[in-house]
Design a binder for these strands. Structure first.
Lengths: 195, 195
DNA sequence: AGGTAATGTGGACGGTGTCCACTAAGTGTG
DNA sequence: CACACTTAGTGGACACCGTCCACATTACCT
């Protein structure tokens, strides 16, 4: 039941973003009276928080799926670069194809905090995947170890900013070709920044 | 009256983001009955849209204010770099000090589109300011003209992504020192990318 | 068998966006 | 001057939302 409500919330979020995950509608989908939800969630925001982490997990899953398709031994410079590229590509692709879920993944309500989801070097999290890719780039000799510390934040920011600006931001109704160009500019910009 | 409603909406947005700009509350502030708003706006989203452009204008104003404090002739390489840095700094500072307005500036409802606000090379718009700063960097010989085309998008993305991730995103409850460090990493990353 | 915890129901309240009919001003024209 | 007409604001209603309360049902454990 709890899982059912979350699943219903995810579907609502998929087609309408975080605002669309409305408690009464979720219970309607599950086929239960609105108040039943309060046996499983303190309030609507807590349900939304669960939906958000589900969305974030789906983003991480899509990223790992695309990532494992890149062949090449660990430590191979070219493979390492391609893996970093795949991470950025998958992030942008998810934002483009699942705009509702993408927006929801980052719309965690102020209360119910992120806990440690992105803390430390947790793999199976977007930041965790990015970090291991960057470590591999250092190991492969592509990225200067002196520049490694903290570089995940600017890089994450470029990709996330591009997703935000082209997805819901001011660039959202640019023609499709222009959006692709911007995504491509972003990825090559990152690639150029490694040397 | 129309202006009053927008002003009230801006104050609501300042302390609570786009969700807080609720039509009835705005009319309450102005001291009028809710329906009176419908003489000036088609619906709540149109009021919100006006508040959003007001917020975006305030961002642009703060940026130009900080920008004009950078002395140095146009074409001076060092001044050009400092001006670009000031643009990024002002953007991040606004996001940090006015989180509600910053979020609102980018929360334009799907209907009421952006029109051409950020189109072309309009000055007095964040993108416009960034573009003229980049042009000056080319003119000053800092930025290779071949790299100029389209580079405003990755750069805007880095700054915007950092603002988003540290402001409302997963990094939002990192300690203050860490947030400053991330902002600084972002700015030096941009600076390094120019050469 | 009976008490207890968990789960779902029914009804209600305040808040919100929005629609409709209505009224009170101002304004220009005969 | 009077009259039609636009404009701006009012009052009341509706549907929807999140949420609280008291109640019924079910299952489990001693």
């Amino acid at each position: 039941m709890r899982a059912g409500l979350i699943a219903a919330g995810v579907e609502l979020a998929r087609s309408g973003g975080p605002e669309a995950v409305v408690l009464r509608e979720a219970t309607r989908i599950v086929g239960v009276v609105p108040n039943a939800a309060y046996r499983h969630f303190a309030d609507r925001d807590q349900l939304l928080a669960e939906v958000c982490t589900a969305a974030m997990n789906e983003l991480a899953d899509r990223m790992t799926a695309d990532l494992t398709r890149i062949r090449g031994k660990r430590g191979n410079p070219d493979a390492a670069r391609r893996r970093l590229g795949a991470i950025g590509s998958a992030y942008l692709k998810f934002a483009r194809k699942e705009p509702g879920l993408f927006a929801t993944a980052f719309a965690v309500p102020r209360q119910h905090s992120y806990a440690d989801r992105d803390g430390a070097s947790n793999r199976s999290t977007p930041l965790g995947l990015l970090r291991t890719a960057l470590d591999e780039l250092v190991e492969a000799g592509v990225l200067d170890p002196q520049r490694r510390d903290g570089i995940e934040y600017p890089i994450w920011s470029i990709v996330h900013g591009t997703a935000e600006l082209t997805g819901q931001g001011p660039l959202r109704d640019a023609p499709d070709a222009e959006l692709r160009r911007i995504e491509s500019l972003t990825l090559t910009f990152i690639s150029n920044s490694l040397t």
